[in-house]
Nucleic acid binder design. Structure first.
Length: 274
DNA sequence: AATGAGCGC
C-alpha cells in the first residue's frame, strides 16, 4: 500500500469549480450578478492569519469581527443541524487531510472519520461538524462536487442524517426530476444553478458518479420545492443546454434514503388511481 | 446510455 504524503495539509487549495465570469454551462441566460457575489472567495486567497495573540492581556479584542478558529461566536441551538456527511473518501484521506481542506474557514469544530473496528481501516466516510448550520450550508453549497485538493476527485458532501429518521434539516417534500445526457464536467452546483435561475424553488441537484472512479455517470437529479415548477421544468428545460450538451429530462423514480422515509406522494396517487 | 445513496467501529 502506498501512502501518499499521509495527513499532510495540502499546500494549495484549488478554488471551487467556478470563477467569476459567466460559466460555459450557463448558456441560457446571464446569471444575476448578486448570485455570484454571495459566493465566498476562493479558499486559497483567504488563508487565515495564524493566530498571534498579543502577549498583553487583552480579553476580548473585537468580539464581532475576525472570529477566532474553532470558537463559535454563539452556541448554536441544540436542534440545529450543522453536521455534514462526507463520502467517497480514499483510504489515505485521514482527519488531517479533511481538516486541511476546510481549515481556512475556521468554522470546523470536529472531523470524525469512521474506521473499521477490526482492521482500523478508514471506511471512506465521516462527519464534519461546523460552528453553525449556516457555515455548514455554505460549505455544502460551495464545495460539493468541486475538486478535492491534491487528487482528481470531487467532494461528496451532504447533510448528516443522524441515523434513523428525525432531525431532517428540511422536511418539506421534494419534487425531483431525472436529468440525463450530462457532459462530463457538470457538477452538482452547475446542474443546480442551471435550473435555479429559472425556478426559484430548486433545492439542490446531484450528479451521479461512479463510486470507484469518481467519474460522472452522465445523469443526475434536480429537486424542487414546488411541484408546479417541477412539472414546468420537465417540459421547458428538456433539450436545453447544461455545459456542452442538451439535457434529456424525465421523471425521477423513487429513491431509497437513509434516515427518514421519503415517499413520493405523486407516485402514490398515481398507483391509487391506476 | 437509461434512475443517486454512502450515515456515527
Amino acid at each position: 500500500m502506498m501512502q501518499p504524503s499521509n495527513g499532510v495539509v495540502p499546500p494549495q487549495m484549488p478554488p471551487p469549480t467556478m470563477d467569476q465570469q459567466q460559466q460555459p454551462w450557463m448558456m441560457m441566460q446571464q446569471p444575476p450578478p448578486q448570485m455570484w457575489a454571495q459566493q465566498p472567495p476562493p479558499p486559497h486567497q483567504v488563508a487565515p492569519p495564524p493566530q498571534h495573540p498579543p502577549q498583553q492581556p487583552q480579553p476580548h479584542p473585537h468580539p464581532q469581527q475576525q472570529m477566532p478558529q474553532y470558537q463559535p461566536a454563539q452556541p448554536a441551538s441544540a436542534d440545529e443541524v450543522r453536521t455534514l456527511w462526507i463520502g467517497d473518501l480514499q483510504y489515505w484521506m485521514d482527519e488531517n487531510y479533511i481538516n486541511g481542506c476546510f481549515a481556512h474557514t475556521g468554522e470546523v469544530t470536529s472531523v470524525k472519520l469512521i474506521r473499521n473496528k477490526q482492521t482500523n481501516q478508514l471506511e471512506g466516510y465521516g462527519f464534519i461538524e461546523f460552528v453553525s448550520r449556516a457555515a455548514a450550508e455554505r460549505i455544502l453549497q460551495t464545495y460539493n462536487g468541486s475538486l478535492m485538493p491534491n487528487v482528481e476527485q470531487n467532494f461528496r458532501l451532504n447533510w448528516a442524517s443522524f441515523g434513523v429518521g428525525e432531525k431532517r434539516p428540511d422536511n418539506t417534500p421534494d419534487f425531483t426530476i431525472f436529468v440525463g445526457d450530462l457532459a462530463s464536467d457538470v457538477t452538482d452546483y452547475m446542474l443546480q444553478e442551471t435550473f435555479r435561475v429559472h425556478y426559484p424553488s430548486v433545492k439542490g441537484a446531484k450528479v451521479v458518479t461512479d463510486r470507484l472512479t469518481g467519474r460522472t455517470k452522465g445523469y443526475g437529479f434536480v429537486r424542487f420545492g414546488d411541484e408546479s415548477e417541477q412539472l414546468r421544468a420537465m417540459t421547458e428545460m428538456n433539450g436545453m443546454f447544461c455545459s456542452t450538451r442538451p439535457m434529456r429530462i424525465g421523471p425521477a423514480t423513487t429513491k431509497k434514503t437513509v434516515g427518514s422515509e421519503q415517499y413520493p406522494k405523486g407516485m402514490f396517487l398515481f398507483y391509487v388511481f391506476c
